[in-house]
């Protein structure tokens, strides 16, 4: 096998395992957050969590495969390492961006739900009887 094929294989291995690791972290820790947001409604929290993680996988693995092709062919080990490092670095940044985006989605959802449950900000000044109608 040529050095570029080695680079590709290693790149795929590292990027996909990193994606799986980040997705698992997101899945595990996001679940607690979502269950609390949806007042203990676990099926709903699990469903939303799952949908988010699927989107996360699709975008990341999609990016990883799109960014696979390399124009400059590395000829020796140094070249392989440099190319690999650059490619994996970009994948890491994309993963980081996606991860923070997910956190943003979680916190937005939570804020929305908390707002819905908020009691009136002020006590009433007085009380009147209300006729049915």
């Amino acid at each position: 096998m040529t050095p570029i094929v080695w680079t590709y294989f290693t790149y795929l291995l590292i990027s996909v395992s990193l994606t799986v690791w980040v997705a698992k972290t997101l899945y595990k820790n996001g679940r607690i957050f979502l269950v609390d947001t949806f007042r203990g409604n676990e099926p709903l929290a699990d469903s939303i969590n799952h949908l988010l993680v699927v989107g996360f996988y699709l975008i990341n693995i999609g990016y990883v495969s799109l960014a696979l092709r390399e124009v400059q062919m590395p000829v020796d080990l140094q070249g392989v390492l440099e190319t690999l490092s650059r490619k994996v670095g970009v994948v890491l940044l994309v993963l980081g961006g996606m991860h923070f985006f997910n956190l943003l989605v979680f916190s937005k959802m939570r804020k929305r739900v908390l707002l819905h449950r908020l009691p009136p900000p002020l006590p009433p000044q007085t009380q009147v009887p209300v006729a049915a109608g």
Binding site: P120, P124, Q125, Q127, V128, V130
Partner: peptide, 26 residues
């Protein structure tokens, strides 16, 4: 008709909001 005795709170002076439970805010 709906809020008997509401005139005492002078709705003509300031905006009044009444909840379905009868809580009044002025």
């Amino acid at each position: 008709a709906r809020f008997p005795g509401i005139e005492a709170l002078h709705p003509e002076e300031q905006l009044l909001v009444v909840s379905d439970e009868g809580a009044v805010y002025r």
